[in-house]
Amino acid sequence: MKYSVQVHVMPLKELLDPQGKAVLGGLKNLGLGAVEDVRVGKHISLQVEAASEAEAKSLAEEASKKLLANPVMEFYEITVNAVNS
């Protein structure tokens, strides 16, 4: 079965996010001062062939731990949805 797997990778909340600070400064320069904080991350979309949703999630967990996220600086969340052929 085919699954659409979404991996959201964000910097750990305890760490400074220089890219987020730069975006926040740009928004303030554009007159959007109501924005108080910005965190910038990555969204990764995978198409996975797996026997079950659990297997698809397990594959995404392995990919995230080994390649997609740096656990020293980032955390990730995984969402899995079946794809209708």
Results as ranks from 00 to 15, higher is better:
Ala50Leu: 03
Val5Gln: 01
Val9Tyr: 03
Tyr76Phe: 15
Val38His: 11
Leu32Pro: 02
Lys66Asp: 06
Asp17Leu: 01
Glu49Ala: 10
Ile78Leu: 12
Gln19Tyr: 02
Gly25Val: 01
Ala69Gln: 01
Leu27Lys: 01
Glu74Ala: 14
Ser52Trp: 09
Met73Asp: 00
Leu16Asp: 11
Ser52Tyr: 09
His8Gly: 01
Val23Phe: 06
Glu61Ala: 13
Glu61Thr: 10
Glu55Tyr: 07
Arg39Glu: 02
Asp17Trp: 00
Glu61Val: 13
Lys57Cys: 05
Gly25Gln: 07
His43Leu: 10
Ala51Tyr: 10
Lys28Cys: 01
Glu77Gly: 12
Leu16Arg: 15
Val48Leu: 14
Val23Gln: 13
Gly20Met: 02
Val72Thr: 08
Gly41Asp: 06
Tyr3Met: 06
Val23Ser: 13
Val7Met: 12
Ile78Trp: 11
Leu30Gln: 12
Lys13Thr: 03
Lys13Asp: 05
Ser85His: 10
Ala22Thr: 09
Lys28Gln: 06
Ala51Trp: 07
Val83Ala: 06
Val80Arg: 15
Thr79Gly: 11
Gly31Ile: 08
Lys2Asn: 05
Thr79Asp: 15
Leu67Trp: 14
Val80Ser: 14
Lys13Ile: 01
Glu62Tyr: 14
Ala34Arg: 10
Gly31Asp: 08
Ile44Pro: 04
Asn84Pro: 01
Asn84Cys: 02
Val23Ala: 12
Asn70Phe: 14
Pro18Asn: 07
Ser52Asp: 08
Leu67Arg: 13
Tyr3Lys: 10
Val40Met: 10
Ser45His: 15
Gly25Phe: 11
Leu24Thr: 00
Leu32Thr: 00
Pro18Asp: 06
Asp37Cys: 02
Gly33Thr: 09
Val23Gly: 10
Ser64Asp: 04
